[in-house]
């Protein structure tokens, strides 16, 4: 995790060329905005969790399936809903209000994938969609697999 943090820090430092620019940003963004945004993210994220619980209960009671399968179906349902809303153009408008409330649930994963596929659609199937679909979500899969193997080994031997 330290390694990841260091690489992130390096990436960010390259982009901060202007100190003046940062000062202008600091002047324009008020401090009380932060707590308002955090509260909105808490509330909308909580609503997503509540909806997920309702959906899982519905799957378990109506289709009579295993609880672990029901959790997985809910996870996939959110992915499909997220990509459909991104395609329709609704997601970005809601995202500007809710912020992290929609990024942290699996809808955010679908949103980044779909939007990077749609942005480069004009360059063709292979060079456009095929090359760019994993542009942002590739890092999730890469670090997920690398750390997953390490911690999967730890989980087995503990």
């Amino acid at each position: 995790m330290l390694f990841l943090y260091k690489t992130l820090k390096k990436e960010n430092n390259n982009n901060m060329n202007n100190i003046e620019y940062d000062e202008i940003i600091k002047e324009n963004i008020g401090k009380d905005n932060i707590f308002k945004n955090v509260f909105i993210a808490f509330f909308t994220g909580g609503l997503m969790g509540l909806f997920a619980q309702l959906l899982t209960d519905f799957f378990v009671n109506y289709y009579k399936i295993n609880i672990n399968d029901a959790y997985f179906y809910t996870f996939c349902f959110f992915i499909i809903v997220g990509s459909i809303l991104t395609g329709a153009g609704v997601f970005d408008k809601v995202l500007s209000i809710c912020k992290c409330g929609l990024i942290v649930p699996s809808t955010g994963f679908a949103n980044t994938m779909t939007s990077s596929a749609m942005d480069n659609k004009s360059e063709g199937f292979v060079k456009g969609i095929g090359a760019n679909i994993f542009k942002l979500t590739g890092s999730i899969i890469l670090y997920g697999v690398v750390f997953g193997i390490i911690f999967g080994f730890i989980r087995s031997i503990i």
């Binding site: 945004n37 993210a41 808490f42 994220g45 909580g46 997503m48 997920a52 912020k99 992290c100 942290v104």
Partner: peptide, 10 residues
């Protein structure tokens, strides 16, 4: 779920 979202927003 709200707690995780709130912390990541912070």
């Amino acid at each position: 779920c709200g707690f995780v979202c709130g912390i990541s927003q912070y």
